[in-house]
Design a protein around this nucleic acid. Structure first.
Length: 334
DNA sequence: AAAATAAGCAACCGCGAGGCT
DNA sequence: TAGCCTCGCGGTTGCTTATTT
């Protein structure tokens, strides 16, 4: 028996939405919430499949969507998260407020992927295409470590995404005030991606001289754009203080605690593997610093407009080598 | 100015997960 | 427990717009 179609396709319109259709959908959701997507088109007087309505709403009509050009920090965040998660756009979108997974996916495919490829970086593996830096025995082991950690991080992000979805369900139940309610969702999240954030404030001091030898100390450290409320736990770069952790965890939901524990697992696994010299987050952030530094002319103001592409490329490769050299036990990233 | 090509992006499709009965 | 239903995700398509020839 074949799979039943998601909806009766005969007589249903496909293709671009008209302003009238948009208005009907908006009006209906404004008044009733979306409820069952399958039943929505008939109730709203739309000759569309419910799936199409959901897509139009989530990717275009939702009031909390930010459109337009991606900022440099958004780009960095996408690259960081993609290195961890791969093409899991919904999980990535969870950490880019007001951006949809579809928009991020399109932006990756049309801009970031090409840019990385142009720089000689495999956009799938986030490794140098030559793979020269994985020739030693230690580097390949580190790559396996990264993969293991990425699995933990991936699972943790999925749990976070679940929390966000649940909070959004609550929000839509009490429509019509979706924008305000959804905007509260991040405030309900536990602090996240500590792996990426942990080094914040440290990297620019300890590594900027290596990564940005000409940029000086006043160069803004391109930290994660992940938008979360004030972190109840102090960000630490050398493991977690147990008493602090315990006190903070006591204030949280079970889910949040689980997420925090997973974060700790990632970090402790890293340190336990004998790579105490440089946490993954250092490497990841340094990596995206480099990307930020070498992104194309549209962001040249950040990188320094006086540099031409050739210089940028030279600095890029030098910076990678410096970055690797800075880690005596080898970088797991490349 | 017209045709060809490339880029950008909205929308569709199929699949899998999870909930419900 | 199995089967059905709904939803969401990721890959892909195809239309529109911009750029090049």
């Amino acid at each position: 028996m074949g799979r039943s179609p998601c909806c009766e396709k005969v007589g249903l319109k496909k293709g671009p939405w008209t302003p009238e259709e948009d208005q009907k959908l908006l009006d209906y959701i404004d008044e009733h919430g979306h409820g069952s997507w399958r039943a929505l088109p008939a109730k709203a007087g739309l000759q569309r499949c419910g799936k199409s309505c959901r897509l139009r709403w989530t990717n275009y009509l939702r009031p909390d969507i930010k459109r337009g050009k991606f900022s440099l920090q958004e780009e960095q965040t996408i690259i960081q998260l993609h290195a961890f998660l791969g093409n899991r756009w919904s999980a990535i979108a969870t950490h880019l407020p007001k951006r949809t997974d579809n928009e991020i996916k399109n932006y990756w495919n049309t801009h970031l992927k090409k840019r990385l490829a142009k720089m000689g970086i495999d956009p799938v593996t986030h490794k140098l295409k030559s793979d020269a830096l994985c020739s030693g025995s230690g580097h390949c082991k580190d790559t396996a470590n990264l993969s293991h950690m990425a699995q933990w991080e991936s699972a943790r992000l999925e749990a976070e995404a679940r929390l966000v979805r649940e909070s959004q369900l609550v929000s839509y139940d009490s429509y019509p005030a979706p924008a305000q309610l959804i905007s509260k969702a991040p405030a309900q999240l536990p602090p996240c991606l500590d792996v990426l954030k942990a080094w914040q404030g440290v990297w620019s001091k300890s590594m900027s001289a290596v990564i940005f030898p000409i940029a000086g100390d006043d160069l803004e450290s391109p930290t994660s754009t992940l938008n979360f409320p004030e972190n109840p736990l102090p960000i630490q770069t050398a493991g977690f203080n147990e008493s602090t952790k315990t006190a903070a965890l006591a204030e949280r939901s079970d889910d949040a605690m689980a997420l925090q524990d997973m974060t700790c697992s990632i970090e402790s696994a890293w340190y336990a593997d004998g790579n105490e010299n440089m946490p993954l987050s250092y490497i990841m952030e340094g990596f995206t610093n480099i990307l930020a530094y070498n992104c194309d002319s549209q962001n040249s103001a950040t990188a320094g407009e006086s540099l031409d592409n050739g210089e940028n490329n030279n600095n890029y490769w030098n910076s990678i080598l410096n970055l690797v050299n800075a880690s005596s036990s080898g970088s797991p990233v490349f």
